[in-house]
Amino acid sequence: MDVTVSPKNPPENSIVSREEWLEARRKLLAMEKEETHLRDKVRAERQALPWVKMDKDYVFDTPTGRKTLAELFDGRSQLIIYHFMLGPEWDAGCPGCSFLSDHIDGTLPHLNNHDVTFVAVARAPLDKIEAYKKRMGWKFPWVSSFGSDFNFDFHVSFTKEDLAKDKVFYNFSAIPPEQAHDELPGLSAFYKNEKGEVFHTYSSYARGGEEMIGTLMILDRAPLGRNESSTMNFVKRHDEYEQKPEAGSSCCH
Rank of each mutant, 00 (worst) to 15 (best):
M136C: 04
S204H: 06
K67L: 10
R221M: 07
L22M: 10
E34F: 06
Q243K: 14
D61F: 08
F118H: 09
L29I: 12
D239K: 01
H103D: 06
E228L: 02
V3D: 02
K139V: 03
D2T: 15
F158Q: 06
D55V: 03
E32N: 11
Q179L: 13
H155F: 11
K56Q: 11
L49G: 10
P176M: 14
S145L: 06
H200M: 05
L219M: 10
S230I: 04
T107V: 12
P50L: 13
L187Q: 14
L163W: 04
I218G: 01
P141W: 07
M1Q: 08
S250Q: 04
I218S: 09
F190H: 04
G96V: 12
F60E: 03
H114I: 03
V16Q: 04
A222F: 06
H110F: 12
M136P: 01
V42D: 10
L108D: 08
E20D: 13
F118S: 06
V59M: 05
D91Y: 06
P63N: 05
F60D: 08
R18V: 09
R237H: 05
S144G: 11
H181V: 02
T117K: 10
V156S: 03
F172K: 10
T36K: 11
G87T: 13
V156G: 02
I104S: 02
A120V: 05
M85C: 14
P50E: 13
N151I: 02
K192Q: 14
K192Y: 08
K27H: 09
S229K: 05
R26P: 00
H155K: 13
D149G: 06
R226T: 08
K133D: 03
F234Y: 10
E197A: 05
N233V: 05
V16E: 09
E34P: 00
A124P: 00
N9Y: 12
D91I: 09
F140D: 01
D40N: 11
K139R: 10
M54L: 12
T107F: 11
S203N: 09
L49A: 15
D74V: 05
S173M: 15
G75M: 01
K134N: 12
F140Y: 07
H253E: 13
S203I: 04
F158N: 01
H181T: 09
R25L: 04
L163M: 08
E246G: 13
K33A: 10
L219E: 12
E178T: 15
K192V: 12
H200D: 03
T107A: 15
S77F: 02
D40H: 06
M85P: 00
C252F: 11
R18D: 05
K128H: 09
Q47R: 14
F118Y: 15
D182L: 12
G93S: 07
Y202I: 05
R25G: 00
F190S: 09
N227C: 04
F84R: 01
A24F: 01
G65R: 13
V143A: 06
A131M: 07
I15C: 00
E34N: 08
N233K: 02
L111E: 03
V168D: 01
P11R: 05
D61W: 11
E161F: 01
F140E: 00
Q78R: 15
D102P: 00
P88H: 13
F118P: 03
L79K: 07
T201K: 14
H110L: 13
E242P: 00
